[in-house]
Design a protein around this nucleic acid. Structure first.
Ligand SMILES: [Mn+2]
Ligand SMILES: [Mn+2]
Ligand SMILES: [Mn+2]
Ligand SMILES: [Mn+2]
Lengths: 218, 218
DNA sequence: ACTGATATTTAGATAAGTCTAAAAATAGAT
DNA sequence: ATCTATTTTTAGACTTATCTAAATATCAGT
């Protein structure tokens, strides 16, 4: 039972939006992401729910079932593998790639994906650092990135630090930012590159100096 | 004004069928080729005619306009370039390739095609000998193939001979098969590999021995 | 708890592509 | 020239995906 391009794009974006919070993905958030209308989203969600690819209760947002998750992750795998090919083998520049990958990700041939993966040398990350799940849907150990480089809106986790002074360690401990601590990067302020994060229901600010010395999951 | 996958497939098959004879392509021939119904074909032809991609008069079959021809040839270009990639770089076997190329040929990105062509070293023929048109739609000088290897139903032309005895030359002359002579390969008989061809409104038989010594346009 | 704003769903319409069944045109044979 | 078989077109219906406008539910501030 193969999916249409449209269904696949919905599943992928439900997946991506669901990573930003624990609740179900809202109709409007999906509509904005997919550049379509909320009513169209409702229609499609119903269809996906009928196919058991998402769980859906009216007005309560939508979440992926295991079946839907598997498909979403596979689309991401294909998208990122194609981006590696386009950038590293065809010499594309950074920006043009995404749009083409957006089409190629829907080519339906498991054998093609396996052979492409092998041809590329089984890459674990795409050229932008995005992790590439393997053919069982398992993502590689998360890549590290400095907190000052992470996109806002991402839920992440402290993976390590770049500064090991006692003063810095004490500061982090006081903030509750110990190794493994999960938090949400809410905002970055342009004027001084400070960031606002949310952890354990508290919202706190971190200076650029602090943020750039914290490695977080990408 | 981009075409849908469906429209592109129609244009490609109109092109291929039109090579077999001079008349317009019949509705039934297209329906059979595209594994669809004649009524669906009529609907689509009307749509393509409205877009000026084909010329169409009721009951008179369909032919490509210059605009439609350009698109059809570009699809063939993409199909064959992808087949070169799949066979030579990803290590696909011979049969699985066509189906995947059938999807890839519709990926819409002129830059992708140019870069792929360069990556492949600007091949002139796909691994089955099919000529690959360049980015202006010009096919390379026709490849030669022995007549015993040509697909039936193809219109072709005598390009050369592999046997230069006086006896053979005289035989060909008597049959009317001189260099440059165009003809249609109508049928091949399995039991003795003899072939039936049509030239100048006459139908004649050629033995396997004769056929294998004639090079024809592929 | 009420009320206005916002988010979501429903109702009904449209366009693309397909199908079946019936009507119309063409081609072939007497 | 007429009849018949074949081809092609039309009419009407269905599915998928989309939209606008209207109805309904939820959320937030008082
Ligand atoms: Mn991308
Ligand atoms: Mn896509
Ligand atoms: Mn092919
Ligand atoms: Mn195709």
């Amino acid at each position: 039972m193969a999916q249409s391009f449209t269904e696949e794009n919905y599943l992928k974006h439900i997946y991506k939006l669901s990573r930003k919070s624990d609740k179900g993905v809202s109709t409007n958030a999906l509509a904005e992401r997919l550049e379509t209308k909320a009513s169209s989203v409702t229609d499609m969600i119903k269809k996906l729910a009928a196919k058991k690819l998402v769980d859906y209760k009216k007005y309560q947002g939508v979440t992926l079932t295991n079946k839907g998750l598997k498909i979403a992750v596979d689309i991401i795998r294909k998208h990122r593998l194609w981006e590696v090919f386009l950038l590293e083998h065809l010499g594309f520049g950074g920006t043009e790639v995404h749009e083409v990958a957006e089409e190629l990700e829907h080519i339906n041939s498991p054998e093609l994906v396996e052979r492409l993966d092998k041809f590329l040398g089984y890459p674990k990350y795409d050229p932008h650092g995005g992790p590439i799940p393997d053919n069982k849907g398992v993502f590689p150990a998360p890549a590290r990135v400095r907190l000052n480089e992470l996109e806002t809106g991402k839920k992440t986790k402290v993976m390590g630090i770049a500064e090991h002074s006692n003063a810095f360690l004490a500061h982090l401990k006081k903030l509750g930012l110990e190794l493994g601590q999960e938090f949400l990067l809410k905002e970055r302020f342009d004027f001084d590159h400070s960031v606002e994060i949310e952890l354990n229901d508290k919202t706190i600010q971190l200076s650029h100096d602090v943020a750039k010395n914290i490695f977080v999951a990408y």
